[in-house]
Design a protein around this nucleic acid. Sequence first.
DNA 1: GTATAATTATTGTATATACAATATCAATTT
DNA 2: AAATTGATATTGTATATACAATAATTATAC
Lengths: 237, 237
Amino acid sequence: MNTKLSTKQITKQLHAEIEHMKSADNKKFATEKEIMERFSVSRMTARQVLDILVTDGLLYREKGKGVFINKRILQQSQYIHSFTELMKERGLTPSSRVLSFKKVVPPEIVRLTLGMPEETRCYCIKRLRLANNQPVAYEIIYTPVELFPNLEKYDFENDSFYRILEQEYLQKFSYDKEVVSATKVVDEIAESLYGKKSGVALKVVDTLYDIEQKPLEYTESWYHAERYSYVSITQKR
Amino acid sequence: MNTKLSTKQITKQLHAEIEHMKSADNKKFATEKEIMERFSVSRMTARQVLDILVTDGLLYREKGKGVFINKRILQQSQYIHSFTELMKERGLTPSSRVLSFKKVVPPEIVRLTLGMPEETRCYCIKRLRLANNQPVAYEIIYTPVELFPNLEKYDFENDSFYRILEQEYLQKFSYDKEVVSATKVVDEIAESLYGKKSGVALKVVDTLYDIEQKPLEYTESWYHAERYSYVSITQKR
DNA sequence: GTATAATTATTGTATATACAATATCAATTT
DNA sequence: AAATTGATATTGTATATACAATAATTATAC
């Protein structure tokens, strides 16, 4: 079989190839012509593939010169916001402990953010997240029962919440908003993270939206100040 | 004169139009055909314009339907990382106080991050950043003297560091990496932010790179925990 | 009236072509 | 030897065309 590859397939393949070229920092990657010939596609298709890889931050173009690898950026994938994948990327073994799993009437800030009518209920999942068996984050997920019915049948100890939404409920995402701040923690959270009555944590409030800008979930996380830092890479067009 | 607009000019114009359509949340924006006819361009050019606006998060496409406005995302521009602009966006009046401006041999972490040879010097600028005259951040900028000679002639009280690099030194940026964590602060920093001997702050370490991935500057900032939070919006393709 | 089919509008993907702008290198001229 | 010119490679911009995939609307059949 010699079925021709689609733009997406070519992009995926080249993406993987770049990821594996670990020591190829700032090296010339390819020319549009090479991509055209290698995959037997037109120049516009080759350009489209390269454009995606440029937008993703893997490559950069220089007029009259060629397309080059943006190696440093690979140290941190830009699109990962799942705890599991982040920890793996940092070479740690992630795990989770479900502290509680309930249906509740949410706090007002959550209800308003998620655009829920009064008195409607949402799932409230509390998890302790660990890396190499050390506590790294205390997390509370809120998501409307109506949106994801029967969520209780999934295993939140060993599964990713994002994966469940994406693959089990076929939910598509559009964007993700995170608000990061420094706070004091007490009681249960301080106890879980530090084993004492109070401490300082990095708080991340995450809201995930679908393609029609409807909020899907609201998650509050408190990260261990010494064991976690939040990394963000912004492309400057 | 009826000179035809370029892709960039059309994009800029539509960008401004979308920004001004404040209450147009989730409304249909345009079809490719309309853009073609309105600006007398080919479909591919119209698509390219819309693609940029989609990548910027202002619009989203739906196959068979059209192109729609992504309104909520406008509440927070994604590409702004300048303190001045961020504060303005939040409706506050920003100002700065230069605490010191020296040439120094940098700490090792800075030297290594900036790829500087041993014993070479860099500028070290300490600023207190305020919003409505209240201290919001204590900031230390490090940048090699070699890269931006005569930096001392600029006014860091009333001018933006980014603007100076961009417009005075014609420096182009590629990307920006920020590492955010929660820390305790003492001495001068605690005193400047909270007026007391110790406190908790949101620490942001920023590294800016040029198009060849060369690091240009290293900035450490400690933000007032109650007066600032870091917001990040990530598009999920 | 309701279900089915056809039509139309719209975005998605792909090809072919042309010329402009920039960078590099070789050939030519001074 | 140095400067200029020209050729070549490469990305940037723009047009024209074709057909596929999806969504909404309209027309038709029952």
